[in-house]
Amino acid sequence: MTISNETKVGALTSIAIVLLILGFNFLKGKSFKSNKVKYYAVFDNIQGLANSNPVMINGKQVGTVFNTDGGMDMRKIKVTMNMSIPVNIPDNSVAVVTTSLLGTTSLEIKLGNATKYYTNGDTIATEASSGMFDVALQKVDPVLAQVKIAVKSLDSLLGSVNSLFDPNTKNNIKGTLENLNKTTANLTVSSAYLQTLLNTQSGALAKTLNNVSSFTGALASNNDKMNDIMTNVEKTTANFSKLDVEKTLASLNGTINELKNTVGKINSDNGTLGLLLNDKKLYTNLNATSNKLNLLLDDVRLHPKRYINISVFGKKDKETPLMVPLPDTVNAPYLNK
């Protein structure tokens, strides 16, 4: 069977059309398989990101952008990603739109360090990109990029400082500087006084050190005496340590007990000394004896002839003896009233 040239041309044309459609859909990021994994990301600005742009992880393409949809509002643009190879994406990863120096836009996923991963149909968190100029600047010279950031921070700091320097603040700073000048002057005076104090010839510190030196010299000269005193103290403590303190205390305790017993006997009516101190009869008898002795002495003084007769011719005194003491002994403390 011979195939005509028209048939061949028609078949080739049909195959070319099919391949063209498939290639166009592939370039648009449409999937030929229904089991591909899809992720979503929402951006405020996609910076020219289009369908079929690559999805990159650490410089390797892992998928393509399938669709970008901003709706009627266009404030939030939802990007659909088709993953061509299976990748575990931690759930703290972020998606960033990046632009190369040649103007090629891609979607880069910066992997996080979580142990839990996104699943098919999840929406990945996004992060604003730095812009093409910043990226180029970082590629050309990272130091200039850091300088640019530092200049921005410095400009913000200077703006904040200028806003703080109102008239009141300036007056306060002026007063602070004046106080600082006064403090500096006081420090100068204090430094001069300290210099005088530390003078090695006439300073108070030098005199104090001289006194300390004299005192230590005196201690050194009396070192032998101090040694003798310490030796005597050691001997005294040794003698104290040799004393039988327990035996002495026991003897003292026995003496105290005996003294207690003696005092107890004195206070009681038992024994001669106790009766002498506590028996009222003895006091009464002594009092009566003393009274009789007084009467006898008064009678001897007034009538001596009754008791002593030395005269040859004298008469014996026959007067009545005294029955009551004389008035000079009436108020004596030994009489009972």
Rank of each mutant, 00 (worst) to 15 (best):
N285W: 00
P333F: 07
Y334A: 06
N309H: 15
T284K: 14
L293H: 06
D298I: 05
T289L: 10
N285D: 11
V330D: 12
K292D: 05
K315Y: 11
P304M: 04
D299Y: 03
I308P: 00
P321H: 01
L335A: 15
T289G: 07
N287W: 01
K318C: 08
L297C: 07
Y307A: 04
K316A: 11
V312Q: 12
L322K: 05
P333K: 07
K292W: 00
L295S: 00
S311N: 15
K305S: 09
H303N: 10
L295A: 05
D317I: 04
S311F: 08
N287Q: 15
N291F: 12
Y334R: 05
A288K: 11
L296T: 07
I310S: 09
N309T: 09
Y283D: 15
N294P: 00
K316C: 01
F313G: 12
R306M: 05
K315F: 11
M323Y: 09
L326I: 14
L293N: 05
G314K: 06
N294C: 11
L326T: 14
N291L: 05
N294D: 14
D298Y: 02
D328E: 14
P333Q: 03
N331K: 10
S311C: 04
P333R: 05
N309I: 08
E319D: 12
M323A: 08
D299F: 00
P325N: 15
L326D: 04
I310A: 02
F313N: 15
H303W: 04
K316V: 11
D317R: 01
N309A: 14
V300N: 02
P333A: 08
P327L: 01
R301H: 08
S311V: 10
L296P: 01
L297A: 15
V330S: 12
R306L: 07
M323K: 11
N291I: 10
E319Y: 06
D317V: 06
L293V: 10
P325R: 06
H303C: 00
V312H: 14
L326R: 06
L295P: 00
Y283M: 09
V330M: 15
T320A: 13
N291S: 14
A332E: 14
T329S: 12
K305E: 12
L335W: 14
N331I: 07
